[in-house]
């Protein structure tokens, strides 16, 4: 939990983009409330299957995606709701997909772990750990070859650091100077195992060994993530190759919504310490108020608006029809 030196400290902490910051706050709050509603739907047995909540990690998705253009690409993970929302997905169609409804982003065929949306550059959330490293790198390959100036971001958790594909594609990305940003969200746990038990050596030394620019960022500080993302995204867009961001964060909840008894792998005190001292939304709202970019009252109003949008999205999804079973054989082939 030590504070990391990052690009933000080299950049003036100006309030040059107040509207952008307020938008970032709103997005973080949307993800938080969205995920709380997912947990609620699961607990009330209204959602088929499971979901992996992003609560506690909101600053990373929002900080990164705020540095992207609408036509830039992302790939996401099984813990992907935050990435999809931050890239511009609409909560109502997200919930519809989580409930397996026809109005969902994938017409109910993907579910929580496979939200994909070409309109927002979302190449798809991926339920194979590290499985999307090739897809993101390939999107960057297309961007470079087609000269459209796009950048691709590959989100993955620290659990993916054990997967060979990541290193194969980082090698290709640096060889060919592809505009791809590898964003490692170290939420401290590979499922139920502390990452220190699975990860040898210095993580940043791995991308650095390929010559890839690598930065460690405080993943609870959305401004730090945003500033660092801006720097490496623009660098990549300018043809200077890939970057790797290691974002330190913490998964407040279990590996999935059903993982509620967690004492056998981590203590309640540890969880509480992150929640009370390092909450990304609390840290950001304190900063916004201290720098007079918002009042507490304005933020509360914003929270209420977000809550009502999310509540409406849940209702939309609950009321939406399921797909016709005859659709099961559609879209196996294009």
């Amino acid at each position: 939990m030590t504070k990391q030196k990052s690009v933000i400290e080299k950049t003036p902490a100006s309030a040059a983009e107040p509207d952008k910051y307020l938008r970032m706050y709103q997005q973080m709050m949307s993800i938080r409330i969205f995920e709380e509603q997912v947990n609620d739907l699961y607990t009330r047995a209204l959602m088929p299957g499971l979901a992996h909540l992003y609560i506690g990690e909101e600053a990373i998705a929002v900080g990164i995606c705020s540095a992207l253009r609408p036509d830039d690409y992302i790939t996401s993970t099984h813990r992907g709701h935050g990435h999809c929302l931050a890239k511009g997905a609409s909560p109502d169609r997200m919930f519809a997909e989580l409930l397996g409804k026809e109005a969902g982003y994938c017409r109910g065929k993907g579910g929580s772990m496979h939200i994909a949306d070409p309109a927002t550059g979302n190449l798809g959330a991926n339920a194979i750990v590290g499985g999307s490293a090739g897809i993101a790198t390939g999107a960057a390959f297309s961007a470079k070859r087609l000269g459209n100036g796009r950048v691709a971001v590959c989100f993955f958790g620290e659990g993916a650091l054990g997967q060979g594909l990541l290193y194969e594609t980082m090698n290709l990305a640096q060889l060919w100077k592809l505009p791809v940003i590898y964003v490692c969200e170290n939420n401290t746990y590979n499922e139920y195992t502390h990452y220190s038990e699975t990860t040898a050596g210095d993580v940043l030394a791995r991308p650095k060994a390929f010559g890839i620019q690598a930065e460690r960022v405080d993943g609870q500080d959305v401004r730090a993530v945003y500033a660092t993302a801006n720097a490496v995204v623009e660098r990549a867009r300018g043809g200077n190759g890939p970057a790797f961001l290691l974002c330190d964060t913490y998964r407040y909840r279990g590996h999935h919504v059903g993982d509620v008894s967690r004492e056998y792998y981590r203590s309640k005190q540890e969880e509480q310490k992150w929640v009370s001292e390092r909450d990304p939304i609390k840290l950001f709202s304190d900063w916004l108020i201290a720098h007079k970019l918002a009042t507490a009252g304005q933020l509360q109003t914003m929270n209420a608006e977000v809550k009502s949008t999310i509540d409406a999205a849940v209702q939309f999804a609950l009321n939406a029809p399921y797909p016709d079973p005859l659709e099961v054989q559609q879209d196996v082939y294009a």
Binding site: Y73, I135, L165, E168, T169
Partner: peptide, 19 residues
């Protein structure tokens, strides 16, 4: 490179995005 999974994965992403 001799990196079958890597360049195949890359090709899948490239195929999705216009090549």
């Amino acid at each position: 490179p001799i990196s079958e999974a890597g360049f195949t994965g890359l090709a899948i992403g490239a195929a999705m995005t216009g090549l």
